[in-house]
Amino acid sequence: MCGRFALGIPRKRLLERFELAEVPQAPARYNIAPGQLVESVVQTPERREMRLLKWGLIPSWAKDTSIGYKMINARAETVAEKPSFKAAMRRRRCLIPAQGFYEWHEENGHRQPWFITSRTPEDVLALAGIWEHYESPEGEIIESVAIITCQANELVSPLHDRMPVIVAPQDDARWLDPQKGDPAQVADILASRPWSDMWAYRVSTRVNSPKNEDAGLIEPLNSLS
């Protein structure tokens, strides 16, 4: 699964990576957790734009918005068929900018967090997502998102059996295109693949609490720790 990630990259890199006209100013984030608002790139009829979507997808037919806490991830293998996700997969795909993501691994009797990121510090990862528009009977509107996961590749599999789908730049336009409503047209993007320019390293257990939010969370632990 993907339950925590970071985005502490200069804003100009988001403009470049996603070919956006503008990116609102926002603080660096190093401990983004489910239930929070996350920046997401969507395709509108006019252009691409950055939106804030609540992490935890709420289907349009939901009777209780708390369902979103169970829907932070969607499996690549079933996202096109599962009732909660299939409409969004066809019409509302998005890209979620990230600097890297965290996974936890059992080591010496405790859960040790690891950070998986690019070897190039300012590289922007694009996580595959789907988003949904929900309106309650009282008129409350919530736009929410789920991150799609696939089978872990060789880098991540020692830590966890799943990982977020990372979309290559050349696939951005096809993934975002609402005209490609047949999931088969983008199915190859969801396949697990090696990423030779990425690495994983242990980080502080301070990341375990979403209340902690600073750049030190993504610093590699000393080899003696």
Rank of each mutant, 00 (worst) to 15 (best):
M1Q: 01
M1N: 03
C2Y: 15
C2T: 09
G3D: 03
R4W: 10
A6W: 10
L7H: 02
I9C: 02
R11H: 15
L14G: 08
E16I: 03
R17D: 05
E22Y: 08
E22W: 10
Q25Y: 14
P27G: 15
R29N: 11
N31T: 05
I32R: 04
P34R: 03
P34M: 03
G35Y: 02
E39I: 08
V41T: 10
P45I: 06
M50L: 11
L53H: 13
W55L: 08
I58F: 05
W61D: 00
A62M: 00
S66Y: 06
M71L: 08
M71H: 13
I72P: 05
A74I: 02
A76I: 02
A80T: 04
S84G: 09
K86M: 09
K86G: 04
A87F: 06
A88I: 06
M89C: 09
R91N: 09
R93L: 09
C94D: 15
L95Q: 04
L95Y: 14
L95P: 11
I96T: 03
I96H: 11
A98P: 10
A98I: 10
Q99L: 07
E103A: 15
H105I: 00
H105W: 03
E107D: 08
N108F: 14
W114Y: 14
W114S: 08
F115N: 02
R119W: 04
P121L: 08
E122W: 11
D123I: 03
D123N: 12
D123R: 13
A126C: 04
A126F: 15
E132F: 01
E132Q: 10
E132A: 00
S136W: 10
E138S: 08
E138T: 12
E140V: 03
I142M: 09
V145F: 09
V145P: 07
V145H: 14
A146G: 03
I147W: 14
I148W: 03
I148D: 06
C150Y: 02
E154G: 01
L159D: 01
L159C: 01
P164Y: 04
I166T: 06
P169F: 12
D171R: 08
R174E: 13
W175R: 00
W175A: 02
D177G: 06
P178K: 07
K180M: 14
G181S: 09
V186P: 06
V186N: 01
D188R: 13
L190T: 00
A191L: 14
A191T: 09
S192F: 00
W195S: 04
M198Y: 03
R202V: 01
R206H: 13
R206F: 11
V207Y: 12
N208P: 02
P210W: 13
P210R: 11
D214L: 13
L217Q: 02
L217K: 14
I218P: 02
L221D: 13
L221E: 12
S223N: 12
L224Q: 09
